[in-house]
C-alpha cells in the first residue's frame, strides 16, 4: 500500500492505494465517481478519459499512484454552480449522445481539444477525437456539438 494525495474536482483526497490500482478504479471504486466508465481495457476507446492537469488522459492507462499530487477533473466536476460546461450543454442541444456510456470520456476529450485550441475545423475535430469511440451516434452530432462549443468558447 502506498499513501497518495490527489485532488479530484477540487477536493483533496488522501488514500492508501495498492500500486496496481488503475486510476479509473480509484475514481470509480475508492471515490465513488462512477461517471468515468470503462469500455475496452486496451487504451483504445477513451471512455475512461479524464483531465489530468487540464489535459485529456485515459485513466485506464495510468496507475492511481502515478496521480499522487496531481489535479484531476472528472465528468462530475465539469459543471460549475449547477451550470453545465459549454461542451456538455452543446452535447445536449445537438443530441450528441444516445446510450451515454462513452459520453463522459468524449466530453472531456473535447474539452481538452478545445482548450488546446485544436478544435478549429470539422476535420481537426474528427482527428482530435480519434482516441474516443462511440457506437451509437456515428459521431455526426458529436462533431456538430464540439464545433458549436468551440465556436462559443473562443
Amino acid at each position: 500500500m502506498r499513501h497518495v494525495a490527489l485532488t479530484v474536482n477540487g477536493s483533496r483526497h488522501e488514500l492508501e492505494l495498492e500500486p496496481r490500482e488503475l486510476l479509473v478504479y480509484v475514481l470509480r471504486e475508492r471515490l465513488g465517481l462512477t461517471g468515468t466508465t470503462i469500455g475496452c481495457d486496451t487504451s483504445s476507446c477513451g471512455a475512461c478519459t479524464v483531465l489530468v492537469g487540464g489535459e485529456s488522459v485515459k485513466s485506464c492507462t495510468m496507475l492511481g499512484v502515478q496521480a499522487d499530487g496531481l489535479e484531476i477533473t472528472t465528468i462530475e466536476g465539469l459543471a460549475s454552480n449547477g451550470q453545465l460546461h459549454a461542451v456538455q450543454q452543446a452535447f445536449h442541444e445537438h443530441h450528441a449522445l444516445q446510450c451515454g456510456y462513452c459520453t463522459p470520456g468524449m466530453v472531456l476529450a473535447a474539452v481538452s481539444l478545445i482548450e488546446e485550441g485544436k478544435a478549429t475545423s470539422e476535420s481537426a475535430i474528427r482527428e482530435g477525437l480519434e482516441g474516443n469511440l462511440c457506437r451509437c451516434t456515428g459521431y455526426h452530432n458529436i462533431v456538430r456539438a464540439v464545433s458549436a462549443a468551440a465556436a462559443g468558447v473562443s
Binding site: T34, T36, L84, L97, G100, Y101, T103, P104
Partner: peptide, 10 residues
C-alpha cells in the same frame, strides 16, 4: 448521462 450520474450495472 451528461453529468456522470447514470446508473450502470458496474
Amino acid at each position: 448521462l451528461l453529468r456522470g450520474r447514470a446508473t450502470w450495472v458496474d
